[in-house]
Structure formats: C-alpha cells, structure tokens
Amino acid sequence: MTKAKTAPKAAPKAAAKTAVKAAKAAPAVKSVDASGDELVFTRPEAMVDRATHYCPGCHHGIAHRLVAELLDEMELTDKTIAASSIGCSVFLYNYIKADTVESPHGRAPAVATGIKRARPDKFVFTYQGDGDLASIGMAEIMHAANRGERITVVFVNNTVYGMTGGQMAPTTLIGQRTTTCPGGRCKDREGAPIRMAEIIAQLGGVAFCARGSLDSVKNIRQAKKYMRKAFEAQTTGQGFGFIELLAGCPTNWRMTPVAANKRITDEMIPYFPLGVYKDLEADGTCGSMIAPGAAGGEAGGK
C-alpha cells in the first residue's frame, strides 16, 4: 500500500525517524504469519472495530475507511479534530478514532474554522453529505474555502438526502426520482444539479480540489490519492483541501448495491466528471497565499 510520501520535508534524520514510527504505526499491515504470508489489507488503526449502522452497499463505509487509512499513514490521528455533520454520517465519531465536534446541519466548515483558528497546529477535517454541504451549508463551505482555511473537507455526494429518507438534493440528477420529486427532477422547476468540485476550485483559498468516485476498485484507489492530496494541502500549509466523492445510496435509490454502483458509473460520472480541479502545488503557485491570521493585522481603513 502507499506509504513513503507521508514524511514531511525535513532533515533526513528526522525523516528517517518518521519512517520508523510509521512502521510501528501500522503493525497490522506488517503482519506476517507462520508461512511467511503477509497481511496486506486489514482495518485501519484509526477505525473503530465495530459494525456500522450503514445500509448494505452504502459507500459511507468506504469513505470512512479511506479517511482512517490516511490518518494512519500520515500519522495524524493524535492531532486530528474532526467536525462531523448531519446526515447518515452523523455517527462518524462512532467509527473514526478522532476527537470530534458534532456540527449543526451544514455548518461543519464554520465549526472547523473555529477549531483551526483555536488550534492551528491540529489537523482539522469535515465530513459532509451533499444535502449538508451543497444546500443548507452552501455559504459556510464557500467562505471557508475562499478564506483558505487550513482545513480539509471530505464531501460525499450521493445525490439524495439519505438520512431523512431520500428527498431531492441539490445534486439530484435530472430525471432522478426522489420522494420530493416523484416525477423525476425537472431542470425548469428544480434547477440543474450542482457541481461542487467545479465551484470550489474557483475560490481563492483552495489549494487542492478534486472529484473521485467510490464505484470501482480503480476509482477508489484514485480517490484515495486525491484525498491524500487534500490532506496534504492542509498539512503543508498550502490552503484549503477539498475532495468530492461520488457515492451510492442503494436504499434511497431503490436499487441493489450492485445496480447502484453501476448507476454511478453510467449516470453520475458523465455528469460529475472525475479528476483534479485545482492543484496549487502542481500549478507551482503555492506559497503565494497569505495564511489566515498572518494577514489579520491589517485591520484596513475604516
């Protein structure tokens, strides 16, 4: 599994020390049995060993695991403070071993702003659904991104309000039937589905923004690479990190998990294209931004 990249730029000695610690941090991955076979995949340390309350085939479980794997690999767990949101993932803290504040619906980016400003040395992330982030929380996500808060946002887009029973979300696809657009979403009446990754990438404070998908092994592996970059946008102090994950909600799509995954492939990905929408590091423009707080001294003319 991916490793190595986690060591921050530092003196070689320090880096070597980090590597040793990393090996200790994930002993399970290093497990070898009597016959010399190696345990190459197991539950990440940062993930609580318990059954989730999610429906069969729900992708929140995969998204949680990716977050936990990165917390392990980047050795972030003990300095992480999460802002959970309101949606099916409200119990994030039952599954991820990070100190967590439960935020009101849509406000996790504001709560995370407060956390990060209070404790700038901590790793701070939010985990939000599409109803939470792209509807009620639109102002908070836009402004946290625009301010360049050094936080990471994990955005799980399943095109419905899962927790409340499958109502229309701002991301619901045209024609998709939900309990509040039973005839299918109509562009004239309800507008077009919002593409958040594209919007967030436009904002000044964003260092990394990408959209991945959880429908296939290849896409999950790619999504994890994006998520790592979204974490690194924060850990390297570049700016705001954003990762959108296309996810299935078989229950409210009234589909089997297998059919739900196919729907992501066939219908969601064409409308929500995967890829990197902004990468300051790759653009070579990082470092031009002013850290929040550092700029605060200039109160400006009144």
């Binding site: 016959s35 345990l39 539950r43 993930m47 729900c58 929140h60």
Partner: peptide, 19 residues
Amino acid sequence: CASCATICPDVAIEVWRGK
C-alpha cells in the same frame, strides 16, 4: 490483489498475500 477488500464498504475482508 485486495480488490475485494478495497470495495467492501464494511471492512469485512482481510487479505493475506503469499510470499
């Protein structure tokens, strides 16, 4: 290859790789 474990939403699969 761990594909099964990667896509499992419930972390129900552990994978051992032969030497």
